[in-house]
């Protein structure tokens, strides 16, 4: 159970990215976050694992208060929250397997990991995750030799290495073509259904929202403007979320 209460983020320049946002996410839900570019979706997801420190408000996750966690506690919380990024954020010059193993960094002993030593179980686990996303044969290639879709799968495998209870996906398919988008979304869906991992996924396309999400929240200029089922988004709601001049595509 993730509870976000009155979350507000004001950047140094005075930009209000999040404005008093409150919502709950029950365990195991697939929550889509929609809204225009710059509406605060990325900021919201990054506040949840404190890559960005919120200005005010509270985030509770399974009883832990994320907003007041000390750096050490935050590390322990972060390792149970996987994150998938729009631009994949792989380390290009490292091998695929190293990128995947990086998901274990919160668990392994820092001293050993600095020497690039991982326990044997982690090695086999990394290969298993790559198999799960269907690119086991690429394990020893450099990450930048892979295509976009393959890179995003590596990103998912990295998140899976964390044994996450929750995955934050920040526009995971925005840089991919529609076919690849569906294959990536299917992986997230499968993780959500089979492993019971909560997924918070920001999306641009409403057809993806209808197809994959259990529930939707929508942001407009940092404010929560909609919360409910995907099927409840009618034309009026759509205009509320995306503005008067917006037209539906797809």
């Amino acid at each position: 159970m993730l509870q976000v209460k009155n979350l507000t983020k004001i950047y140094d320049g005075g930009v209000k990215a999040l404005d008093n946002v409150t919502f709950d996410v029950p365990k195991g839900q697939f929550l889509a976050v929609i809204g225009l570019s710059g509406s605060g979706k990325s900021t919201l997801l990054r506040c949840i694992n404190r890559l960005i420190d919120p200005t005010a408000g509270q985030i509770l996750w399974d009883g832990d208060d994320i907003t007041t966690a000390t750096p050490e506690e935050m590390r322990r919380i972060r390792r149970k929250i996987g994150m998938v990024f729009q631009h994949f954020n792989l380390v290009h010059r490292s091998k695929v397997i190293t990128n995947v193993l990086a998901g274990r960094l919160g668990y392994v002993n820092p001293a050993w990991s600095l020497l690039n030593r991982f326990p044997k179980e982690d090695m086999s686990k990394a290969l298993k995750q790559l198999e799960r996303v269907g690119i086991a044969d690429k394990a020893h290639q450099r990450a930048d030799e892979l295509s976009g879709g393959q890179q995003q799968r590596v990103g998912i495998a990295r998140a899976l290495m964390q044994d996450p209870n929750m995955i934050l996906a920040d526009e995971p398919v925005a840089s991919l073509d529609p076919v690849l988008a569906h294959s990536i979304m299917k992986h997230l869906e499968e993780i959500n259904k089979n492993d019971g991992v909560t997924v918070l996924c920001s999306l641009h396309f409403l057809d993806l929202v209808h197809r994959y999400a259990d529930r939707v929240i929508a942001l407009n200029q940092g404010q929560l403007v909609f919360e409910g089922l995907p099927s409840e988004i009618d034309d009026k709601k759509f205009k509320d979320i995306y503005g008067r001049d917006a037209e539906r595509v797809g």
Binding site: N49, R78, K80, G82, M83, N89, V91, L105, Y107, R158
Partner: peptide
């Protein structure tokens, strides 16, 4: 990006 991703793993 990678910096952010690795930090996010804990």
């Amino acid at each position: 990006g990678p910096l952010e991703a690795i930090t996010a793993t804990g």
